[in-house]
Write a protein that binds this DNA or RNA. Structure first.
Lengths: 344, 344
DNA sequence: GCAAAGCGAGAAAGCGTTTTCTCGCTAGTT
DNA sequence: AACTAGCGAGAAAACGCTTTCTCGCTTTGC
């Protein structure tokens, strides 16, 4: 008869009395400590099995000072990019017996610091994706979040690896591809104004413009989702550009959808490119030319970096840099002669 | 000067000595207990702020017997359906101050029980999506997982709400829609063999066939992802069907992509339908006709059910049933005359 | 045959909170 | 003025586990 502990759940004490040993011995057996007499160990194991005893992880965490859990802060779980990072992170962490706690900030960057702090205290480490957080704030909280791995951000705080995608280079590659196809009027459908990765794209475009003075590049306001792209049709057409670099694949898909509704042909009339290479990108019609980022792998790497930090391994590489690979598909093609434009 | 506790982090004891009071008083102040003298409370708060004290959630969880965390077990985080459930769940739970721990079983259903148990012990409740788990296994573990909410599964265990989508009805609605368009030869591109929701679809189709003996319905083996749909093109064409019910939107998209490559027109030659209405469904070309399931809302409801269980509210409704809404878009159209087929 | 060494298991002290219990002090009542 | 009621805050127990410390037993070596 199992004497249930106060909480109603079976605890180590119940196993101890059933096996006629002390708590300590039960703990030793459960943790594979071999200094226990085999007979007693067997008795304990039998008792544990009979009572279906499962150690309480909270008590364990308190005693051990670790939770075997890591946290990830994302700005928007609806975004396929962060879904992919989460997926890679979760899979890699699971292989090492770690679980993942998610904290979705729902794009309210003011809450991000608090959210990150709370998540961190429940976990052994944190992966932070906070594209909208100000640099100042990031610098301020980074030290208190250690072990910490940053995605697409950097900090001066020591021992904080950053995994960053070279959006600047990627955008240049894409622009180069369009120019090779004969496009001389490009437009960049920008991301959210305070996005760090958008900044990187803008810097890349500046570099590109400097190297290609003959190409006209129009900057258009945008966002990061379908609707943004869909609503941008008018602005895109007004720009007179024939090659459009959308902030990401979502925006590109929205744009293509909008262009389609207007009866325009992609890439016949206008070439459209995305960024990220989300799983759906190759299934759009036409299939989307994009800057492919190994996003899932990025999540996986985030875990490896974090693991090194948690294990206090000194030899961990201090982050990593990912170069997007230009993935040419069917949404880009040769430029046709410039159309007449509204402001031309 | 903060006397750091052994662990290196600042604890309640540090605040206590700094404020010149006992641990108990600090705890009282931090929890808004008003039996503390305002002057002392202020002193404690000042000390806490100065030391940047943040209560350790693990110690708190042990004392309180709750973690303010819930778990969700999903078979595949790459699947947009589960991403949407997770999103809805996470958002709703966050509003009540709960966090979400994810456990991805990566489709290895043999691990699901263990995974679910482990996740449950770290949390105050669990949401279980386990479409491939056998009924017997589900019945066995369900009681030990309480508080538990099931998605698209039911169990005889008491106090286990189920949120189920009526795929059977949905599939009948879709088939009916195709028949109205004049299709008399349909094919069902089935989901994974042991999927519970696939069973529901099959049952629905049986009902449909009984009511429409004049319609020929071919069953085709399938799966649940893009590639499954893409690879099914030959089988679909061989069936001679003009109206295809794909297991879900992903499969439908893969199929449309494959048909497109073969130079076939959707819906001119073949009508294709999906299921779920994932965010991308309306952006495919042609836009996908599908059975729309309010998936995010389902995640949200899962939290509400779970919350009622956690709070031991007796009046909680015992689950819910969702009826897919037929979302007619451009991937379905009038049937053309039957083509010649390979067999029959 | 006795002392020292070694080993196995129980007692107890943490881990960082919350909460009950207790006690001392103040105020209020007759 | 004395006694009680009430209240505020410290001491200590509890949450469930791990781990060090300690002690008693057995074994080994001289």
């Amino acid at each position: 008869m199992a004497r249930k502990s106060a909480s109603g759940r079976i605890g180590i004490a119940d196993v101890a009395v059933k096996a006629g040993v002390s708590h300590a011995t039960v703990s030793r057996v459960m943790n594979g400590n071999f200094t226990v007499d085999p007979d007693i160990a067997a008795r304990v194991r039998a008792a544990a099995a009979e009572l279906k005893y499962q150690p309480n992880p909270v008590g364990r965490s308190l005693a051990l000072g670790k939770t075997d859990t890591i946290g990830i802060v994302v700005p928007d779980l609806a975004n396929p990019t962060f879904q992919a990072i989460l997926r890679g992170l979760s899979r890699a962490a699971a292989e090492d017996g770690y679980r993942v706690l998610i904290a979705d900030s729902f794009e309210v960057s003011s809450e991000e610091s608090i959210l990150a702090g709370e998540a961190r205290r429940r976990c052994d480490g944190l992966v932070l994706c906070a594209p909208r957080m100000s640099d100042a704030e990031l610098e301020e909280i980074a030290p208190s979040l250690h072990p910490l791995v940053l995605i697409n951000r950097t900090t001066a705080a020591p021992h904080v690896p950053s995994l960053v995608v070279d959006y600047g280079q990627g955008v240049q590659d894409i622009a180069g591809h369009l120019v090779e196809l004969g496009h001389t009027r490009l437009a960049f459908l920008a991301g959210p104004p305070r996005s760090a990765s958008n900044e990187m794209r803008l810097k890349g475009l500046e570099t590109f413009k400097a190297a290609h003075p003959e190409v006209q590049v129009t900057m258009l306001e945008g966002g990061s989702d379908f609707d943004t792209g869909h609503e941008a049709v008018d602005a895109v057409l007004a720009s007179g550009a024939t090659g459009i670099l959308a902030f990401n694949d979502l925006v590109a898909m929205g744009l293509m959808s909008g262009l389609h509704e207007r009866g325009l042909d992609v890439p016949g009339d206008i070439s459209v490119t995305g960024f990220d290479d989300i799983p759906f990108a190759k299934y759009t019609t036409p299939a989307l030319t994009t800057g492919a980022v190994p996003i899932t792998e990025l999540g996986e790497q985030a875990w490896h970096q974090l693991r090194a930090l948690i294990r206090k391994e000194e030899d961990g590489t201090p982050g990593g840099r990912y170069h997007p690979r230009l993935e040419v598909r069917a949404s880009t093609g040769p430029a046709k002669a410039p159309r007449s434009t509204v402001h031309g």
